[in-house]
Design a protein around this nucleic acid. Structure first.
Lengths: 230, 230
DNA sequence: TTATCTTAGTGTTAAATTTACAATAAGTAA
DNA sequence: TTACTTATTGTAAATTTAACACTAAGATAA
């Protein structure tokens, strides 16, 4: 039985990027304003059709860079969405990816069909283009489980941070309150935070100690069978 | 800037199914022998190109039924693989799905380009067609985390089973040894196993009690905030 | 310089959970 | 009746989690 292969090679694949950031208080996500149809003037996840000559996992960074100027990020795949009518221009299935970055370390340069690029509080995100609300929701779920089992939260903080900042980050991502004493005990006993010896500056109260995430130490512990868990 | 959309709508999307089963001793996976090129005569995951007019999540069952006769299963998405050269006939990205079934409940009827369909011990699987070894590996990882956090293992056992069978199942999936007393305590305290009152038959030793998974009870507990965890 | 304000930082105890561990029970088969 | 095989069960120690409130250190204002 010969199969007419041509009819199968008629789909497009797109990639949508969920870039998370943290401003010290709220978990944020980077959105672009679409300057073209479809969904012109809607806020959307940075995403675009994938060139057929690119690897799916590599294409993510190209697409994000085109739209926002951000480059060379480490993405994790979330889920693939393949409803028939999810894209008005044709049959497009899309794969969602997420990443975490320090907001202040990057400059946003919207281009291509992105007329703007802006950080939004995750909790305040309204209606997005396409099925991007679903993609965002799925990404948040994945982020929540990832952040509990791997030390990826530090990607969202400045290199030197206080334990209070770290706790606020976890509270924002997990959307729960944590007990300060228990949280600090748990983190410190894991032995991969290094005191810098420095203190916070320009605060009108007792300054907190500044810590760093010691990646090498973490990898050593990991090899010994240590399991991160918050 | 107008975009030449046509060049994007030239990909195909395929679906690969990882069907897990359990024979009382080993975790198994259902493979087909390919009767057509490419990879003719290779063992492979049941999988095929998706019709452009089907929903990705619905297409899974059609494809599996075509190749193996199995129908109406509940699948969970695993991951999407999009390397450029993963398929020799063109640009095909594929999404992997897994499901769990009771081996004895289904009859295998290989058809279409599947010349055979057969259960293989997961640990004994050799080289498969395409990148199916990677897809299988990723599915096993996902199965392992899923089986610890949701009561899906019961899908692999007969409706009535002994606690020893359940333990063997978990040991096979997680590839670890469990302490019998602690395992039974943990499972029983969760309160969603129902004694049938029956005993094992035709065994030449003390017969074990037969249990059932009480799905309604589980859902009640779940609503009350109970969290399955093994 | 002293008092006040604000956030940083810390320890203990009870409860719950996990772990380690071995003897008895209930059948079948010889 | 005995031997054999697998099923079934409890306890104590160790670890982890959970709950909870006061002192410390700096900046600022009186």
């Amino acid at each position: 039985m010969e199969k007419n292969l041509e009819k199968y090679f008629t789909l497009a694949v797109s990639i949508d990027c969920v870039v998370f950031g943290f401003d010290g208080k709220d978990l944020k996500v980077l959105l672009i304003k679409r300057g073209e149809v479809p969904f012109k003037d809607f806020w959307a996840l940075p995403g675009d059709l994938m060139s057929p000559d690119e690897d799916l996992n590599f294409s993510v960074n190209h697409i994000l860079k085109d739209l926002t100027g951000l480059s060379d990020l480490f993405f994790e795949q979330v889920e693939t969405f393949g409803e028939i009518k999810r894209h008005p221009l044709g049959r497009v299935i899309t794969t969602g990816y997420f990443t975490l970055i320090k907001i202040g370390d990057y400059e946003l340069n919207p281009s291509s069909f992105a007329s703007k690029a802006k950080w939004f509080k995750v909790k305040k995100v309204k209606e997005l283009a396409f099925d991007h609300n679903k993609i965002l929701e799925s990404s948040i779920n994945k982020l929540q489980t990832s952040v509990r089992t791997r030390p990826i939260g530090f990607e969202l903080l400045p290199q030197e941070f206080t334990l209070t900042e770290l706790q606020l980050l976890y509270e924002a991502i997990l959307d729960i309150k944590l007990d300060t004493r228990n949280f600090r005990k748990k983190i410190i006993q894991m032995k991969f935070l290094k005191e810098t010896g420095k203190l916070q500056e320009n605060v009108s109260h007792r300054p907190a100690k500044l810590f760093q995430f010691d990646k090498k130490q973490y990898e050593i512990l990991e090899k010994k069978g240590f399991n991160f868990e918050v």
